[in-house]
Design a protein around this nucleic acid. Structure first.
Length: 555
RNA sequence: GCGCCCGUAGCUCAGCUGGAUAGAGCGACGGCCUCCGGAGCCGUAGGUCAGAGGUUCGAAUCCUCUCGGGCGCACCA
């Protein structure tokens, strides 16, 4: 990785810190932020306001004294001022901003990346849908979020494993088999009873037909007790394949597919109970084995092993997380729907009992999606017979739009997706807005008659100092923000910050494009602008790439 | 009843660890193609940040309560 220049924000912060030290003033935390109004400057610190009380002096006085001898590199900073009630504002030097183009063009794909998490081994577990049905829109949000979060962490140098947990050992698999069995029987005898609580949905009938096509009436006379395994395995395998195919098409790739059943093959459940017992977190009551969860932050104690001797869902899941820990992950991130928020507390309690650090598990909870269709709001749940399948969504609005839409809202907002609107694929779609900016840049280069002016072949021009138009400065400032935006998004596990950023960046680009002509006669100026255009294109592509969205050359 | 999440412009949503006159997109209204793609750009209108208290030099942001919506409260998974 090329040398990365010191970020001005950090430089500003450092300068304030050392000035505070000189004056022997307190310096616990130094806030540096983007002023709401760009007229106030590029970075601003309210430190003087915070110090007014402990120092018992007016904030403006404090600010003036801080600014009097602030050690700021003139290559990076221009004007420094005290404004309003005592804010210290600094403006970036045009030269600094112009050089951002060089940074981007030389660092190319590594611009915005960092190695600050390079020692971290992080497991991101997501989707983890049971193979009892096809993926629907809820899983899609999970997949889009999880994959984007994993990418963001990778961008900061972390070693990330994307993992999928298949609950293939529980009773729901039996129910799946029984459901398919009933539909299979119904192909000959429509009055054959469907099991109570069985899986509704057309896909069960499809599975039954597939089995008939494959095995004919071979199972027709066999009693259910003798063929339940065959039905369960057939259906599970088919669903598994279908899920993988959907995810593949959705451009989500997992390194590890973990089967719950693997936890039963050795003594991992027993070992987990033993560990919890060592921690004094297990007791027996009413012939069941309990986890003393209430002592670890949960509302009440939880059963690990039922009276029947069967483990609950919780036990293998604790064993699974214990397994992740033993595999050496520093952090485990689980992407869970809102119906799991209580479960997250339970799991953290269990991991706390095992002695893991409190933030070893970082659950990301996302709220349910509502659909707006024909002007009516439709809520979706797994049990609802109304499901919007991921594959249908991809057919309707495409992978790019689906992925973008599902990460553009914060996870904890109850988002409403207007299906009619999304299907329309028109200009109101922010995805196209961003992609269009990228394609437009390609188009400019397609019209370039002097290929030697393209920075991709000719390198960075010497004329970057000609980028002085206001729209250019604004665009440069936006490009300079990218590394901070991506780092913050990674730390917060919030991919929606990237979509917000990309829309702003695209807007800055379109504004510039309308204000200034890129392909001008004047060679140095044209080359400077072409360089800015390329730099913008790289960042657009990188940002979209973080979200798994393509950056088309033309549309 | 208890727990978690949410309540910001007509609609969908941003607002980063509290900071200087609350933002964007869509929709509405009015403009801009002899000029690198008009999938674009410019302008106008539109908000008691659900409500009430509190903390603070400063609150959409933190705390408490109320109201409204979602989700969860199994020896189901």
């Amino acid at each position: 990785m090329e040398t990365v220049r010191i970020r001005p924000r950090e430089e500003f912060r450092t300068a304030i810190r050392s000035r505070l030290a000189e004056l022997s003033w307190p310096s616990e935390e130094i806030v540096v932020e983007r002023p709401g109004d760009p007229e106030h400057g590029d970075w601003s610190s309210p430190i003087a306001l915070a110090l007014a009380r402990p120092l018992k002096r007016s904030p403006r006085e404090i600010a003036a004294e801080l600014v009097a001898d602030l050690d700021l590199n003139p290559d990076s900073f221009g004007e420094v001022s005290v404004a309003g009630p005592g804010f210290i504002n600094v403006r970036l030097a045009p030269r600094y901003l112009q050089e951002v183009v060089r940074d981007i063009l030389t660092q190319h794909e590594s611009y915005g990346r960092s190695d600050r998490l390079k020692d971290r081994k992080i497991n991101v577990e997501f989707v983890s849908s049971n193979p009892t049905g096809p993926l629907h829109i809820g899983h899609a949000r999970n997949a889009a979020l999880g994959d984007a979060i994993a990418s963001l962490l990778e961008s900061q140098g972390a070693s990330v494993t994307r993992e999928y947990y298949f609950n293939d050992a529980g009773r729901q698999m039996d129910m799946l088999g029984a459901s398919v069995h009933a539909r299979y029987q119904q192909l000959w005898d429509p009055s054959f009873p469907f099991p109570e609580g069985g899986y509704q949905g057309e896909y069960i009938r499809d599975l039954a037909k597939a089995l008939r096509d494959e095995a004919g009436d071979r199972w027709l006379e066999t009693p259910i007790e003798e063929c339940s395994t065959a039905f369960r395995e057939f259906a599970g395998e088919r669903m598994n394949t279908a899920i993988r195919a959907d995810l593949d098409r959705f451009r989500v790739a997992f390194e590890v597919w973990f089967n719950e059943s693997a936890l039963y093959t050795d003594d991992r459940l027993k070992a987990t109970i033993a560990d919890l017992k060592d921690a004094g977190a297990v007791y027996e009551d009413d012939d069941a084995i309990w986890f003393r969860a209430s002592e670890f932050g949960d509302a009440k104690d939880r059963v690990l092993v039922k009276r029947t001797g069967q483990p609950t869902y919780l036990l293998p899941d604790i064993a699974y997380h214990r397994d992740k820990h033993e595999r050496g992950f520093d952090t485990a991130i689980d992407i869970w729907g809102a119906d799991h928020h209580d479960y997250a507390i339970r799991m953290r309690a269990a991991l706390g009992a095992l002695g893991y650090p409190p933030d070893w598990l970082r659950p990301v909870i996302y709220q349910q999606i509502s659909l707006l269709e024909d002007g009516q709001e439709v809520r979706l749940s797994t049990r609802s017979d109304r499901m919007v399948l991921l594959q249908d969504l991809m057919d309707d609005i495409g992978v790019d739009v689906t992925r973008y839409f599902l990460v553009m809202r914060k996870g904890d907002t109850h988002m409403v997706l207007d299906l009619d609107l999304a299907r329309r694929q028109t200009e109101e779609n922010p995805v196209y807005y961003v992609q269009y900016a990228h394609a437009r840049i390609s188009s400019v280069f397609g019209r370039l008659e002097e290929p030697a002016w393209d920075p991709e072949t000719a390198g960075v021009p010497d004329s970057l100092d000609l980028l002085t138009a206001q729209t250019e400065i604004d665009l440069l400032r936006m490009l300079d923000d990218y590394p901070d935006v991506i780092a913050d998004a990674a730390d917060a596990l919030e991919p929606h910050r990237i979509t917000d950023y990309l829309e702003s960046l695209a807007r800055r680009f379109h504004l510039w494009y309308h204000g200034e002509h890129i392909l001008v006669e004047d060679e140095p100026l044209a080359r400077a602008r072409l360089a800015l255009a390329r730099a913008t294109q790289y960042v657009l592509r990188a940002g979209l790439g973080q979200l798994g969205v393509t950056a088309p050359e033309s549309m």
